[in-house]
């Protein structure tokens, strides 16, 4: 496969053809913030955190979906991008009820990490404080919609890896919710195999194991990529 040479933040980087800017940057040790991306799942370009500047392009481009090209000049961390990323993370915190102090995922939460890494000291926007539901109808797992960021990683893990498509999205705008089957309580979603992939895929404490308390959540997002890679080798 042909190699492509590009510059990322001034560093010359060699990448494989067809690779995304996100992958090329990571191999070069440059971290671009992400939220809806998860290794092993398809890309949706929805969170907008990985937007980067490209020389010659007026528009910001999502690093997860933009393939590398010869001679490309990428900037991943300009002041404009950092400000936009902070704003996006703040908007998420303002949207639902992310209370790290009482969350199972505290310490293992991508949203919490993003806020700290991006320098979010406080949220400038009004907290919308919607009343969301908590579904603990499933015997092993639960979902607290206050903590959902609508990244759809559960939806994709369930559809693409488990092959079940129990999860989907209903509603629109801030009223959008991830749902199980045709919007029935999770415990009644007969398609669910209880494989737990959604739990591993969730970046926040939205999907949790029942019985876990603050900062007790144990999960391994890498398991999704592991399963995908293992299947590729076998089939």
């Amino acid at each position: 496969m042909a190699a492509k040479t590009l510059t990322i933040d001034g560093t010359l980087v060699s990448a494989r053809e067809g690779e995304s800017i996100l992958e090329a940057a990571r191999e070069a040790g440059i971290t671009i913030p992400t939220l809806c991306h998860l290794d092993g799942l398809s890309e949706v370009g929805a969170c907008r955190l990985c937007l980067v500047e490209l020389t010659g392009s007026r528009r910001l481009q999502p690093a997860c979906l933009t393939p590398v090209a010869e001679g490309m000049e990428v900037r991943t961390s300009t002041e404009r991008l950092r400000e936009h990323r902070r704003a996006i993370v703040e908007l998420l915190f303002a949207e639902r009820g992310h209370v790290c102090a009482v969350c199972v995922a505290s310490g293992a939460c991508e949203l919490q990490d993003l806020a700290a890494r991006l320098g979010v000291t406080h949220v400038r926007y009004d907290y919308l404080a919607p009343a969301c539901t908590v579904d603990i109808s499933h015997p092993r797992f639960g979902i607290d919609h206050h903590r959902c960021v609508l990244c759809t990683r559960c939806v994709r893990a369930c559809d693409e890896v488990e092959g079940v498509h129990t999860w989907d999205v209903a509603g629109r705008g801030t009223a959008a919710r991830v749902i199980t089957d045709l919007h029935v309580p999770w415990g009644q979603a007969t398609s669910c195999t209880s494989c737990g992939k959604c739990l591993h895929a969730c970046p926040t404490g939205a999907i949790f194991q029942r019985g876990s308390s603050v900062a007790e959540l144990k999960r391994d997002p890498g398991v999704i990529a592991l399963v995908v890679a293992a299947r590729k080798e076998r089939w």
Binding site: F93, G97, V99, V102, H122, Y127, A129, P130, A131
Partner: peptide, 19 residues
């Protein structure tokens, strides 16, 4: 200086807001 999450975000004190 806002000291701690309640001052900074509302935190646990603000858990009543959705109600």
């Amino acid at each position: 200086l806002s000291l701690g999450d309640c001052a900074v975000t509302g935190n646990v004190t603000a858990l009543r807001n959705p109600l």
